[in-house]
Structures are given as C-alpha cells and as structure tokens.
Nucleic acid binder design. Structure first.
Length: 570
RNA sequence: CGGGGUGUAGCGCAGCCUGGUAGCGCACUGCGUUCGGGACGCAGGUGUCGGAGGUUCAAAUCCUCUCACCCCGACCA
C-alpha cells in the first residue's frame, strides 16, 4: 500500500476527552473516530488491525471445532421475554419498535437467538456436541462508556455457544476453548493470563477470564509465581493467618482523636502502622438492622465476597448516616465493635489480631489495646477482603503477587440456565428427553486492539505486535523529491518486498523526514526501512525495529531477504 | 440516575467575570525557499460562538430552559 493512495489521518494533537494512552493514540493515529458517546467509526488503518485480529480469532476457533454462524443484530422481544431477560437486562438493552409497534432489541449477546436455533434444529444426542460462534457487532447501552473502544457501547465481540448432552462433554469443550484462547492471545503477541473468575449472577461451575496484562488495567489479578494459581482478586481467597491469636497484653484505653476520620489520619495521629488498626464498615443487614464489618486498616473490602454473606442485605447497601448514628452513637470514622449490640463480622485477619486500635463509638475517640473476647464478643469470622501481595497462595504453594489486567475474554460453563428457560432438550440414547448443557465463550475483539496498545506503546506512539499491525513494514524514502535515485530505489524495493509477501506501506508523500518517520512510529508499524541518499552511496538501506533506538544497515542487494528474516523473527 | 465540568473553525484553546465589528496555535489552500527527525516566509479560506427563548439600543458574554460531550459511583467483552 502507498500512503498517497491510503487514507492516513494522523494528528499532532489529541481531543481533550481522551484519558488513557490507548484511546489517545488510537485517535492520534487515526485508527478510530468517535461518532457519538461510546460509538466509533473504524478508520481504514484501524480496520486493518481489527481484521487481522478477527482473522486469528476465526482461524483458531475453526481449528478448535467451532462452527461460524451469523446471527441478526436486531432481535424480537418475544425471545427475550421467554428467557426472562427482557425485564432482567435493564436499560443496558437497547430497545426499539418497528413500524408495527412491535418490540425489538439490538443484541447485546446472543444466548436467546442461538438457543432458538438449536432447539429447532437439534433433536438428538447424535447431533451433539455443537459449538457455534460468530464475530459480530454488539450493542450494550452502558451507563458510562469510556476509554474509547475499551468500553464502548457498540463493539465487536466473538461469541461462541456450545451445546452438550452431558457435563463431561461440556467440560471437554470448555477446556478446548481455554486452550484455543491461549493460542489466540499468544499468536496476537500479547502478554496475557488466564485467571479463575467469579461466576457472578450466571452461576455455573466454571469460569475463566483472560486478561491482557497492562499496568493501567482496570482489573487486579492475584497470581502465585511459584505455581499456576491465578484468579481475579474478586475471587482469590484470603486464607486465615497461620497460628493462634496473640494474647491480650494491653489495657483497653480510650483516647481522644479529634478530627481523625481515616486510617491514614489515625496512623499519623497515634504514630502506629496501619496493620495495628481495624476499620469498621457498616452495611444494611438482611434483617434490616446494620451489620458491622471489621477489616484491618490497610486492607480493602471485597464486595463480591461480602455479597455472599447471609447476614447482609442484597443488593449491598452501605448504611445511611442516620442509621449509623442511631445504632452506634457516633459517625463513620469513629465506629467500632465495643458496646455495639448487633451482628459483627470480622475479616479472618482481624479475627487473629490482638491489642489493636478501633473506633470507640464516641465521636472523635478511638480505643487502643482492643482484644476480641475480652472487650467484645467473638465475632463471625469470614473472608471479606481483597488479597494483597504477599498473602499466602490459596493453593498453599507460595505467596501471591498482584498484576493488573484488561479483561479481553471470558469463558463460562452455563450448564442449563438457558436450556431450562428456553426448553433446550434432546433425546438421549435411551430415548429420554433431557436438557442440554451449555457453555459460552466471549472475546472482546475491539477491546483487544485497545488492550494491545495499552500494553505496547512508547512516547512516540503505538508499537503493534506483528500479528495485528496494520502493516508489517514501513518503507520511507528520504529526499526522494530531489534525488530520483532514492525514489527509484524505494519504488523497486517496494515492488520486491510486496512480491515477497510482506505487508509493506510505502510513504510516497514527499513529506519532510521528521513528519514521515513520526507518522510511521505513531501508527505502530513494527519494522521500518529508510532509503536515503546517505545509504545509497554505499549501496545500503537502513533497517530499524520499532522498539529499537538505532538503525542497522542492510545491503541493497539482499535487502528483501534481510527484511524477511527480521519480520519473520518477530 | 446522582454529583462535578465543558460546549467558540477539522483539532487544541483564548475571549465570558466587567455586553459594543469573533481571535490565537496546529491543520488546510496557493507561491517561494527549504527538507536525514513533526521547517520558514508571504498570501489565503474556514465559524448557525451546541440549540431555543428572554433581558438589552446592542448578547459568544447576563438570565431561563434544553441538548450533546467529558469526569467520579453501580455493569461488562
């Protein structure tokens, strides 16, 4: 491709709203352009990237025995009413009416449609298992789209749905999909991790998320460097500390702590580490009365874990200020378990602490030397915090570390949540009608592009992994306008490289060198050849990898071969 | 939905407080010089000042309503 015949639209300046680096670079490089909030046009350059990702996903899905299908974006309300999700899905489901005032929606996911197809077509265990997938535009009317295509309302997803006669078959396909995903992200050249995930509202037995690792990622992943343990922090279990609780040594003492509201202020005021403090969080209880949760000062509450406690009200609600004052006699910042008559749930770490500091239930006062059993009744002990780096790995094989990641894939064993709702039955070997087992497997195709940039960039722009780069090689003649030999050499090289099957972009714009080089770097082309007067004097061209800081010289004679070896080694 | 913010040229912004002929930089067009790391000179085009209503002799500026977008909270690929 020649730049003069392409539609390159790079920008020096970025729209003010772009917050994260991938969004800024995607706009600056002209990969995408916003049409409305969370809705983007994929410009020609961006589309090339998207198509390369799609191709790899498609090839690996096909190789894993999945069959491609294309389902409609617009779906009738009846199917969604049948599954119950017309009401359950809420405002995220974009609804519309046709000219006859019939209700439709734009598909945010396709369990209903694919189930409808399968229940009509599949009658016998002999037709199972079946794994159908599509790569298609979805619409979810997100409350708050942000970060460009990272969290868009309209986005491209690869969604697959598998159907099985029994759980063993489901588990086989599930494993095949996990392996398929690992191959996809490996081929895309991304650093990633598969982690055990919370099955959340869907339930079921197994679920894994695939995260592209990036410091800016929204999700925290706990993993054990000494084993293969990896889980979303939401799910990772914080084990009880080893050994028995320490003996009470200090006397219970009330100290005035004027103006102290946060743990940081408390630590500064008393000159103690956060590990010796306990913070109190009050939620509405299942019986309507507040429940006191106790956490070590430096730990974070894990709402997913708390939501599983029987003592709390669902959906979770932090207790209102008036409720707290009425029950504790003090405001948030001064709360504690001593003299509190109600349910107290202590994190396992807190349950093993002694001589700690906690709010006194008197405004602007704390208690020091607090001990469980002596100063207040033994609380319910539960795992209610996020794990932190250094915690023992739940598999007992070492200590946890925390990484940040961007969720780009999610696989679920749905079991028969939908097969029951939509009556997906088949006849087994004995002629008995049974419900199918189902799995579903998603990949955020558009999100992958943003995640890849988030993981691979520098101050000059994007550094695409080869597999998803819009072009493999940039060919930049310098001074072609005044030196016909430079132009002729570049043109000849362009033909030869293209003939050798290299996806090359020739910058034939006669731009100044700085502009041309900066553009090629911004759009993230992984390899570059510069043809200039300087090199031609000695029959050479300059090669430079996008991550390298210095060029190397290739002899013009075997430039194509040299380039091939660099590109293929990538 | 609640809280905060911004809407002025394709992009980034000033002007608004204190009403009086709509500006700057980048980008764009033409000519010339330059050109191995985002050049320079000269000339030029570009605006429903988000929209509607109001106050006023006069509104980008003040008031009311409205729309869009951005940021902070519950969702998710």
């Amino acid at each position: 491709m020649r730049v003069s015949q392409f539609f390159l639209s790079t920008h020096k300046e970025t729209p003010a709203e772009a917050e994260i680096v991938s969004h800024r670079l995607m706009l600056r490089a002209g990969l995408i352009r916003q049409l409305a909030r969370g809705i983007y046009t994929w410009m020609p350059l961006g589309l090339r990237v998207l198509r390369k990702v799609e191709r790899i996903v498609r090839e690996e899905m096909n190789a894993s025995g999945a069959i491609e299908i294309a389902m409609p974006a617009v779906q009738p309300a009846e199917l969604w009413q049948e599954s119950g999700r017309w009401d359950e899905f809420g405002p995220e489901l974009l609804r519309l009416k046709d000219r006859h005032q019939r209700d439709f929606c734009i598909g945010p996911t396709h369990e209903e449609v694919v189930s409808d197809i399968v229940r009509q077509e599949v009658r016998s265990y002999r037709q199972l298992p079946l794994n159908l997938y599509q790569i298609q535009t979805k619409f979810r009317d997100e409350i708050r789209p942000r970060f460009g295509v990272m969290r868009a309302r309209e986005f491209v997803m690869k969604d697959a749905y598998s159907f099985h006669a029994d759980v063993e078959s489901l588990e086989r396909t599930y494993r095949a999909m996990v392996e398929c995903y690992a191959r996809i992200f490996t081929r895309l050249g991304l650093k990633f991790r598969a982690v055990a995930a919370d099955t959340g509202a869907i339930g079921g037995t197994g679920s894994h998320e695939f995260h592209v690792l990036a410091d800016s990622g929204e999700d925290a992943i706990a993993y054990c460097p000494d084993s293969d343990y990896a889980a979303n922090v939401e799910l990772a279990e914080a084990l009880p500390p080893p050994g028995p609780r320490g003996n009470a040594a200090a006397a219970l003492t009330r100290v005035a702590t004027p103006g102290v509201k946060t743990i940081a202020e408390l630590c500064a005021f008393l000159a103690i580490p956060a590990e010796r403090t306990v913070k109190a969080v009050v939620l509405d209880g299942a019986d309507g009365r507040p429940v006191l949760l106790m956490l070590r000062g430096d730990h974070e509450l894990n709402l997913a874990k708390v939501a599983k406690l029987e003592q709390v009200k669902r959906p979770l609600a932090f207790a209102a200020g008036e409720t707290i004052r009425a029950r504790f006699g003090a405001g948030p910042g001064s709360l504690g378990p001593v003299n509190f008559k109600g349910v107290v749930i202590a994190d396992r770490t807190v349950a093993a602490m002694s001589d700690f500091v906690v709010g006194a239930n008197v405004d602007d006062h704390h208690l020091t030397g607090v001990n469980i059993g002596r100063d207040f009744p033994e609380p319910v002990a539960a795992d209610i915090r996020n794990v932190v780096a250094g915690d023992a790995s739940p598999d007992g094989k070492g200590r946890l570390d925390i990484l940040r990641g961007i969720e780009v894939g999610h696989v679920f064993q749905l079991r028969n949540k939908y097969s029951r709702a939509l009556n997906l039955s088949f006849l087994d070997e004995t002629g008995k009608s049974r419900l199918m087992e189902m799995g579903c497997y998603g990949i955020g195709v558009t999100r992958i592009v943003a995640a890849a940039i988030e993981q691979n960039h520098d101050e000059r722009g994007i550094i695409f992994p080869r597999a998803m780069a819009p072009f493999e090689l940039a060919l930049v003649p310098i001074g072609a306008a005044k030196n016909p030999q430079v132009r002729a050499t570049a043109e000849a090289l362009y033909r030869d490289l293209a003939a050798a099957g290299i996806d090359v972009l020739l910058d034939d714009r006669d731009e100044r060198p700085g502009v041309a080089l900066a553009d090629m770097e911004l759009i993230g082309i992984p390899h570059r050849i510069v043809v200039g007067e300087r090199g031609l004097k000695t029959g050479q061209v300059e090669y430079q990898g996008r991550r390298e800081s210095k060029p190397q010289l290739f002899s013009l004679h075997d430039a194509v071969k040299s380039v091939e070896s660099m590109v293929c080694a990538d």
